[in-house]
Amino acid sequence: MTQAEFLDIVMPFKDKVFRLAKRLLVSQEEAEDATQEILIKLWNNKQKIQEYNNVEAFSMTMTKNFCLDRLKSKHAQNLKIVHSNYQDKNVSLQKQVELNDSVDWVSKIMEELPEQQKIILQLRDIEQYEFSEISKMLDINETAIRVSLSRARKTLREKLTKTHSYGVR
C-alpha cells in the first residue's frame, strides 16, 4: 500500500480520532500526539488494514484504548494533564451569562462526566455514529449505550440549568 492510498483511507476519520482523543485527554497537545501515534500505528500495520472490515471503527476503538491507557499511566504517576485551552470563565459568568460562555461550560461539564459517558456522548452527539457502530467500537450492547447516553444528556442539561439560572455554579 502506498502512502497516498493510506492517506485516502485515513483522511476521512483522522479528525474524529483527534476529537475523541481531545475529549479524553483534554489537552490539545496530548491529543495531537495521541492522534499521530495512532496513525503511525495504523501505518506500521498497513498490510493488515485490508483485513479489518471497518478501519474507521477499528481506529476509534484503538483511540479509546490508547487514551484510557494514557490517562491511567498519568494517574499512576500522580500527574495531572496540563490543559490551558480555555480561560477561567468565572469572572465573566458573574456578570452575565453569554451564549459563548455557556458553550464553553458544556465542554467543562462534559469533562466531569465518567469516561464511559464522555466517550458515548462524543461518538453519538458529535460524531453522529449509529448505535450499532458505537456498540461495535466499545464492545457494549446497544441498550447499555442508550442508558449511558441518556444519563449523560440529563446530567448535561441539569448542570446547564444550574449555571443558567444562577450564573455561577
Partner: peptide
C-alpha cells in the same frame, strides 16, 4: 438546551492540523 447543541455543532468542525509523519 441551546449551548449544548451549539457546542456539539462547533466541536464537530474541529480538525487535526498536524502533519502525519509517515
Amino acid at each position: 438546551y441551546k449551548p449544548m447543541f451549539v457546542y456539539f455543532l462547533q466541536t464537530q468542525k474541529e480538525q487535526f492540523t498536524k502533519t502525519i509523519p509517515l
